[in-house]
C-alpha cells in the first residue's frame, strides 16, 4: 500500500484505539485522582462490560441494535454496581491504603476472572454490531489523464468504527461536563483536594468514594461495550486495557482528565503510526521504551504539575 493511504488507515485505526482507551483510562484516572488508589482490577470491569454485552445482545434477540443499546445501558450499570459493592465491602475497610488496595484488587482480579471462566467459559465470542458497512476510501494518483481517483486495495474502514470514535468523543465531553459544570463534580474535586475538609462541609466522603469507584468501572465497561462488536469478548481480555490505561493515566499526569485524554490519543495514534515503519514487535518495543523515556524526563506526566 502507498504511504498516503497507509498513513490514513493507521490513523483511523489509531483513533479507534485512542477513543476506547481514553474512555477506559478516564475511568481509572477518576479513581486515581479522587481516591489516590490503583485499581488493578480495572481491566476486569472492562472485560465484564464486553461479556455482558455478549450476554445481553444474545438474550435480547431481534435486530442487533436493540441488544446493543440494551448493553450500552445495562453493562455499565452492572459493572458500576459491582465495583461500588467491592469498594463498600473491601476498600473502605482497608482505609484505601495504597499497598493493601493493590493486593485486594489483585484478589478481585482473580475472583472476577475465575467467575467469568466458570460461567461464561473460555471461548472468544463475537458480538454483532448494530450496523457495519464497509466504506472503501479513494485516493489520488497521477495517471495517464493527470490526477485521478482510485480505490487502493484494502483501503477502507467501517461505519461502526467511525461511530465508535464519535460516541467516545461525546461520552468524554459528557464526563467533562459532569466534572466541570455540576455539583457532583464540585463535590468530587472537594473530596480529592481535602477529604477531611469535605467531610466538615457535610460531604459523605464514603459515599463519594463508592460512587467514584463505581463510575470508574462503569466507564471501562462502557468502553468495552463499544469496542466489543469490533473485537470480541474473552475472559482474559482485561490485561491489555489495564496496562494501557495505567500508562495513559500516568503519562497524562495524575488526576488530570484532559491530560488522560491527550495521552490516550498520543499513545493510540503513535502505536498505529510507529507500526508502519518497523516490524510489528520492534514497533511495540520502541513504543514501550518511548513511554518509559517520556516519564524519565518528565516524571510528572505531560499535564501534571511538578511537585516541588
Amino acid at each position: 500500500m502507498d504511504f498516503g493511504p497507509y498513513l490514513i488507515l493507521a490513523s483511523i485505526e489509531g483513533a479507534v484505539q485512542a477513543a476506547v482507551l481514553a474512555l477506559t483510562a478516564v475511568g481509572l484516572s477518576l479513581v486515581f485522582g479522587v481516591m489516590r488508589v490503583v485499581n488493578v482490577a480495572h481491566g476486569e470491569f472492562y472485560m465484564i462490560g464486553a461479556v455482558l454485552a455478549w450476554w445481553v445482545s444474545t438474550s435480547v434477540g431481534g435486530h442487533p441494535a436493540v441488544g446493543f443499546i440494551a448493553a450500552l445501558v445495562l453493562a455499565p450499570l452492572v459493572a458500576g454496581a459491582l465495583a461500588a459493592l467491592c469498594d463498600f465491602l473491601i476498600l473502605r475497610r482497608v482505609d484505601y491504603d495504597p499497598e493493601s488496595t493493590i493486593v485486594a484488587t489483585i484478589g478481585l482480579l482473580y475472583i472476577i476472572q475465575q467467575t467469568t471462566l466458570m460461567t461464561y467459559g473460555p471461548d472468544a465470542r463475537p458480538i454483532e454490531p448494530p450496523f457495519n458497512e464497509r466504506i472503501a476510501l479513494p485516493w489520488v494518483q497521477y495517471g495517464e489523464n493527470g490526477l485521478e481517483w482510485y480505490y487502493p486495495w484494502g483501503f477502507g474502514t467501517t461505519t461502526y468504527k467511525l461511530f465508535v470514535i464519535v460516541a467516545a468523543i461525546l461520552l468524554l465531553v459528557g464526563v467533562w461536563a459532569v466534572l466541570a459544570r455540576t455539583r457532583i463534580g464540585m463535590i468530587l474535586r472537594a473530596s480529592q483536594l481535602d477529604p477531611d475538609m469535605a467531610r466538615a462541609f457535610g460531604v459523605n466522603v464514603d459515599r463519594v468514594y463508592a460512587l467514584v469507584f463505581g463510575a470508574g468501572a462503569a466507564l471501562a465497561a462502557l468502553a468495552a461495550v463499544l469496542i466489543a462488536p469490533i473485537q470480541q469478548a474473552h475472559y482474559l481480555m482485561g490485561g491489555d486495557p489495564l496496562l494501557l490505561s495505567f500508562i495513559v493515566v500516568i503519562i497524562g499526569g495524575l488526576g488530570s482528565v484532559a491530560g488522560t485524554v491527550v495521552a490516550a490519543v498520543l499513545i493510540g495514534m503513535s502505536d498505529g503510526v510507529i507500526s508502519m515503519f518497523f516490524s510489528p514487535t520492534l514497533a511495540k518495543i520502541i513504543a514501550t521504551m518511548l513511554v518509559a523515556f517520556v516519564l524519565i524526563f518528565r516524571p510528572q506526566g505531560i499535564f501534571g504539575k511538578r511537585v516541588a
Partner: peptide
Amino acid sequence: ETSFTKYFP
C-alpha cells in the same frame, strides 16, 4: 496485540 488492521497494509 489486540488490533490488527494496521498491519495488513
